[in-house]
């Protein structure tokens, strides 16, 4: 497990926590707007699962960091460039098809990443990963089934899901940089199997866009944080 040791536990906890926090916020943007009540609840459920993961990771990151910051402090009192989430997680929802593709790509990556993390010598990270794996297995299944349903549906749903694949594909490289490169073949096999069921193909390689892990984000993150951090920015340390 030398691969999981390449990053410090603090940095790893921050990255994984930010991934979960930012994607959780994106999913909650669907609340009240999803195509059906059933899907609305499903997206909020997944969002809340991710928020739970974020809380564990960020509390731990704050503890290791030693500056007395907890998950709330890290979530609400950091600037854009201090966030270490992947660019995929912060991408706008687009339509439902794109949201499902983003979720499938992300959750399929998370599943592999957390399986490895569950065997980490860092007991806390391993425990968080082990707890989250059951949730993630459902997220992958849920998103994959929607990708198939839409790809195998009408001409319009197929067009939309194909566009979602193209949109999200540019941000895949970033998930497999550095020590995560070894996970890519298993991820591509999983994704290819689902896309084939959906009547879609794995896109040709493109020049991936990276930077989120170093704090260089797309324009979208600033807007997301403006909304997410609004109350704490207006009323610092407000509680309820």
């Amino acid at each position: 497990m030398a691969q999981t040791l390449a990053l410090s536990p603090a940095e790893l906890a921050l990255r994984l926590g930010d991934d979960a926090l930012i994607l959780s916020h994106r999913l909650c943007e669907w609340c009240g707007r999803a195509p059906t009540l059933e899907v609305d609840l499903a997206l909020s459920n997944i969002g809340l699962d991710l928020l739970g993961q974020a809380q564990f990771f960020l509390n731990y990151a704050g503890e290791l960091d030693g500056n007395g910051r907890d998950a709330d402090k890290l979530a609400y009192h950091r600037e854009e460039h201090e966030f270490k989430n992947s660019l995929l997680a912060e991408q706008p929802n687009g339509d439902f098809a794109r949201t499902m593709v983003r979720q499938f790509f992300f959750s399929a990556w998370q599943l592999l990443r957390f399986q490895e993390l569950a065997a980490s010598p860092d007991g806390t990270l391993a425990a968080i990963a082990a707890k989250a794996l059951k949730e993630i297995a459902y997220h992958v299944q849920f998103a994959a089934e929607w990708v198939v349903r839409l790809g195998d549906g009408t001409a319009e749903s197929k067009r939309r899901v194909a566009e979602g694949v193209i949109w999200s594909w540019r941000f895949v490289d970033e998930l497999f940089t550095g020590e995560d490169a070894a996970l890519r073949p298993a991820w591509e096999a999983r994704v290819q199997a689902t896309l084939a069921q959906a009547g879609l193909e794995l896109p040709a390689p493109v020049r991936g866009i990276t930077g989120g892990r170093e704090g260089r984000h797309s324009e979208h993150l600033g807007h997301l944080l403006a909304e997410m951090q609004y109350v704490q920015r207006c009323h610092p340390n407000a509680q309820w």
Partner: peptide, 20 residues
Amino acid sequence: SVHAADARGAVEAARDVYTR
């Protein structure tokens, strides 16, 4: 009850709506 296109989707919708 739930709306779903197929049985699999119905189980998932039911899980999300009624067993959370």
